[in-house]
Design a protein around this nucleic acid. Structure first.
Length: 414
RNA sequence: GUGGCUAUGGUGAAGCGGUUAACACUUACGACUGUGACUCGUACAUACGUGGGUUCAAAUCCCACUAGCCACCCCA
């Protein structure tokens, strides 16, 4: 038995990587348009970073991290998400000293030890963006609008935006208490998982998909009714800006987050097309995170997009690049000639392919067709001698005589 | 961590106890000794995830293992 990849770790083969590049390039373009710069952070961090940011009691930290002890006896962890590293770097390099308002994006692999299934892998990829230093709801709205714009430009308008507010450390405890009181009375109607959640994370019960639980929790107190004045104003501001830019969204007061650092605005881009993995992108505000990690009291907001899930939504769409020209040759001498011609054309930006081995003309033409070349040309003794050749437009077979010179060939192809 | 389903070539698959392991795609070569797409021909699994067992006979039945998928949990 030959060696295979690790469970949940996937190879991205050419057919798929074309699609990935399309997503990545579109994301970079949209982010840069919005004034974001890329930050590249390591894929491994001290374990402590994730414990402090994501939260000790979360599932991610409790049972899903790839944590090791390295040769220097340090506990290190393959990052399960990106925000913690970005904020660690923001603090470590004192980026806030230059300008507390930073707009950063990142992309790369993340690692979570979960049972793989559709749209969920142990090594998966995220593209994320963060804005620090802005309290105003305007920042929330810009982040959301950018996210929506990105999906539009990728060509996906199916995922819909859901927003919520989780309040802040001032108002959340009271909400939690009233929710617990409400649930306590209906404990017997909840599923087993929810009864467990009642003690571990009562907010999660709102997110349960079991019909009985949905029924039992009808009329449960909503976070949105328990926001303090400031949080309420903030959320109203966000909604106002989304309305004023005609960004479609719906409010889901039952939306919960799996990471502890979120405050106020939270959101998800959800789809019905990926089975149980409905979130394609998600994020929120994390006003306490930077100070919690030892930095100054600077707020932040951001999101992460699940790369694999976006790729899945794009389906089998073909994003491969076709050659502009395929050069077929008759003999060894012509092949040398063609190689020099190809070299010149490549240097001037024409996408050229040729046959490397001495295959029959028939098989060379077949290859030209298979590669989807726009034009083909056959170079034999006559062509080398005359310096001219018949260029064939593959889609209709029309042939045009053109000199075998870079400039003439380029012109002909326009 | 829990459950369900599936495992035949590069791919999609037929096969249901005795077959040269069908068919299609892909690939290679040819029909056409200087021209692709359509057509036609030829070649391409000593082999049916691995290990046991039942049987005169197993890809086909049984068991175990392994892997993959999907779902739960959780999440992007």
């Amino acid at each position: 038995m030959s060696i295979t990849a690790i469970k949940g770790f996937n190879d991205i083969l050419p057919a798929e990587s074309d699609r990935w590049q399309y997503i990545e390039q579109t994301a970079r373009r949209v982010f840069e348009l919005n004034g974001f710069s890329e930050i590249r952070v390591p894929i491994m961090e001290k374990t402590e970073l994730f414990r402090r940011s994501i939260g000790d009691a979360t599932d991610i930290v409790e049972k899903e991290m790839y944590t090791f002890t390295d040769k220097g006896e340090n506990s290190v962890t393959l990052r399960p998400e990106g925000t913690a590293s970005v904020m660690r770097a923001f603090i470590e390099h004192k980026l806030y000293a230059q300008d507390p308002v930073a707009k950063l994006y990142y992309l790369g692999p993340m690692f979570r030890y979960e049972r793989p299934q559709k749209g969920r892998y142990r090594q998966f990829h995220q593209i994320g963006a963060e804005i620090t230093g802005v309290n105003a709801p305007l920042a929330d709205a810009q982040v959301l609008n950018m996210l929506v714009q990105l999906f539009r430009e990728i060509g996906l308008d199916e995922p819909s935006l859901q927003i919520n507010s989780l309040g802040c450390p001032d108002c959340r405890p009271a909400y939690r208490a009233s929710l617990v009181a409400f649930m306590e009375e209906r404990l017997d109607r909840l599923c087993e998982d929810c009864r467990r959640r009642f003690t571990t994370n009562p907010l999660r019960i709102l997110d349960c998909k079991v019909p009985g639980c949905i029924e039992a929790t009808v009329g449960a107190p909503s976070v949105l009714d328990h926001l303090c004045g400031d949080c309420d104003d903030h959320f109203a501001g966000v909604k106002g800006y989304l309305d004023s830019t005609a960004t479609p969204y719906s409010i889901n007061h039952r939306m919960v987050r799996g990471l502890d650092y979120y405050t106020r605005t939270t959101f998800e881009l959800v789809t019905g097309l990926l089975g149980s993995q409905s979130a394609v992108a998600a994020g929120g505000r994390y006003d306490g995170l930077i100070s919690q990690l030892g930095g100054p009291a600077i707020p932040g907001i951001g999101f992460a997009i699940g790369f694999e899930r976006v790729a899945l939504l794009l389906g089998d769409k073909d994003f491969s690049r076709q050659p502009d020209l395929f050069i077929a040759t008759m003999g060894v001498g012509e092949r040398d000639f063609a190689f020099r011609l190809m070299h010149d054309l490549l240097r001037s930006g024409v996408r050229v392919e040729m046959e490397y081995e001495g295959k029959s003309l028939k098989s060379q033409m077949r290859r030209a067709d298979k590669l989807g070349a726009r034009y083909s040309v056959v170079i034999g003794e006559n062509e080398v001698a005359s310096g001219k050749a018949a260029f064939k437009r593959m889609k209709d077979g029309e042939q045009i005589e053109v000199p075998l010179k870079c400039e003439d060939i380029k012109k002909m192809m326009e």
